[in-house]
Design a protein around this nucleic acid. Sequence first.
DNA 1: GTCTATACCCGGATAGAC
DNA 2: GTCTATCCGGGTATAGAC
Lengths: 225, 225
Amino acid sequence: MPAIPYRERVLRLREDSIVQAVNRLLVTKGYDLMTVDEVAAEAGMAKASLYKHFTSKEELAAAAMIRVLDRAIAHVALLHAQAPQATARCQLEAVVRWTLKVQLEGEMPSLPAENSRLTASLRANREYMNRLIELSESLGAWIAAAQADGGLDAGLPPELVLYTLYARACDPVLAMMKASGQHPDEQIVEWLVSTTFSGIGRPAVGGAKPTTRAGSTAKAKVVAG
Amino acid sequence: MPAIPYRERVLRLREDSIVQAVNRLLVTKGYDLMTVDEVAAEAGMAKASLYKHFTSKEELAAAAMIRVLDRAIAHVALLHAQAPQATARCQLEAVVRWTLKVQLEGEMPSLPAENSRLTASLRANREYMNRLIELSESLGAWIAAAQADGGLDAGLPPELVLYTLYARACDPVLAMMKASGQHPDEQIVEWLVSTTFSGIGRPAVGGAKPTTRAGSTAKAKVVAG
DNA sequence: GTCTATACCCGGATAGAC
DNA sequence: GTCTATCCGGGTATAGAC
């Protein structure tokens, strides 16, 4: 039952390499500075061939962004399955840690910012918006639970928490710290998880934190390295 | 002693209106999407006239960014003068509050992270870099003091704290919250100051904080200034 | 479906009259 | 110094052969 014939499969592979090229360029240059010529060169084909698969530059970028959301949704599902008993706060920390790792590996395009014509076209893209809503609802459930059980500050609007999580996924601080080259990657990630949940202020003393302070155990180990 | 003749003064006024137009466009569209034609239209003159004052689009943007840094440096100096006895942490909170307020008023261009050709040219601009270093040294002194007296988490590298302050000045979360229109501006600002210094985690109970929790007392006074 | 070559437009920068 | 008109590179998208 070769429901997916050979031709179809090589086509999918080719499109996948295109999307990966787009993702790399979105990360390094951003949408506006990314040119279709570069995408074609990176994907190893002529520009006109790209337009046989995707009808416009916007659609090209949308495919890459959708892929990012799919990865995030899959990871959230994985966390649900792996540790169903974990606290909501702990799950959210894991999500942030994962997004930072993806960003460290150079695979997380920075989407927000009001500008960049990409955002406008993404809002009109149903496939993208449906996934964004799905992801937001999953995270929203954890946020509500964590605010109810004291894992997160219940005085903050849930939307503010959600936006903060999205913003930290593309936080430029990580790139700046990595550029300095003074610290190992894992250490940087744990610091950013820590500042996201506990801020830059004095760390709480005497078990005021609902869970282990982010990076407490991992930190000591990594600092030595 | 009219060391500044009349001609010179109208020239300065004209250039100042240009820089303001650039700043507005940098905020709304960002450097790459901002066109020189738009700047000319906004400033109320022909495009060619712009090039009599500034030799390139990059220089145009640099002038606006330098102006932003000058405002920040001036505000830091003001804080020094107004409250020389305040704790370093309190001063840093005031700085963040000010940057958020400027962003709220639509006058804070988002310093793009790695991408955007603007950053490359800014790094090569001495006037910009000198001011950036000056500002960073002022903030760095407060950061060191706050980490020494327990106002800030001493386990974080000072550079991480500094980068975080810069990043929060352009935090997209503020724009998202404002766009929702559900909350008053002052409330949004205080929430963001709070998440910057204390994170989104459970607020400390029973005076674990070194200063008043962001947004309680310091708010009224400093926001007015 | 992939290529080469090209149409077309937009935006930065300039020429030259006043 | 300000204007109108123009140049010209570069970027998206397409035509048409194979």
